[in-house]
């Protein structure tokens, strides 16, 4: 009997589908590692539903040993809110990319935030539409070169990048948890996701976590340039940290409306 070294994957990962379908250096693997560790820490594998969106995030459909549903752009959130309302004992995780969440499916995010639905939303922001070949996304940084902005994004023509967590934090009622993490700090990102899942477990309201991620394939960067872009340029525009915590006092604009419970 020899004890062979085995990869240290989170328990909730499915080892038989590894290596996973993402490109080399993709940040999805790191975000899903943080999510897997958070699910392991809370021991909720048996009652978690994982929903993935259109885009690169759908490649995570066989990533976990969880019941998984894959829906259309941004509709992951309403589909999972429906599951949550029918089966309130479940924990639902809506996993989207920035294209699905902020561009094509933004109305679902806004409606869900204003309803304060009991759902944990994770948006992976890599500043491009990665699956279709690296076109400009709402989160593309000013001056960043993509397939459709070969001279760099011009903010006068196409506006400023969307700040998703700030948007949700502005409209979500009290009880919401909103944070932005980064793959450059995995332990912090895992703590944010765990707090987001905890917020749903305690029935306080919506949890929204944006994760700054990498796309070496479409950025055309090597490892050093990838880290430089994530740690320097992206965090300069997208500040990392918690924006809303459920402990804070409700401001006068919102009446006390508890989240929907069936």
């Amino acid at each position: 009997m020899a004890i062979a070294a085995q990869p240290q994957m989170p328990r909730v990962w499915r080892a038989e589908t590894k290596p996973h379908k993402f490109c080399p250096g993709c940040g999805h693997g790191i975000v899903l590692k943080a999510l897997g560790e958070a699910i392991d820490a809370l021991d909720i594998q048996e009652r978690t539903i994982f929903g993935c969106d259109i885009g690169c995030s759908l490649l995570s459909w066989d990533f976990f040993n969880l019941d998984t549903v894959q829906t259309h752009h941004g509709r992951t959130t309403p589909v999972l809110v429906g599951i949550k309302r029918a089966r309130p004992e479940l924990v639902v995780v809506s996993y989207m990319g920035d294209g699905g969440a902020y561009a094509i499916g933004a109305q679902h995010l806004v409606s869900s935030a204003s309803r304060n639905d009991l759902v944990t939303i994770i948006v992976v922001n890599n500043t491009v539409y990665a699956m279709t070949g690296g076109q400009m996304a709402p989160t593309t940084l000013p001056g960043q070169k993509t397939e459709t902005t070969p001279y760099g994004r011009d903010a006068r023509l196409t506006g400023r990048p969307i700040l998703g967590p700030e948007l949700v934090a502005a409209i979500a009622p009290p009880g919401a948890y909103v944070a932005r993490g980064s793959i450059a700090n995995i332990v912090q990102l895992k703590n944010f996701i765990q707090k987001g899942l905890q917020n749903q477990l305690e029935g306080r309201g919506i949890a929204f976590i944006e994760a700054l991620s990498s796309c070496p394939t479409n950025w055309h960067t090597n490892a050093a340039a990838t880290w430089r872009f994530v740690e320097k340029e992206m965090t300069a525009y997208f500040p990392v940290g918690e924006l809303r915590t459920p402990e804070e006092k409700p401001s006068g604009r919102f009446q006390e409306v508890p989240p929907y419970e069936s």
Partner: peptide
């Protein structure tokens, strides 16, 4: 991102390998 590396401390003690002390 692929969990392709596992570092084992040679002195046997060591901090937990997992983020969550699994």
């Amino acid at each position: 991102p692929d969990a392709a590396i596992w570092i084992e401390r040679r002195d046997g003690k060591g901090r937990d390998t997992s983020l969550t002390a699994a």
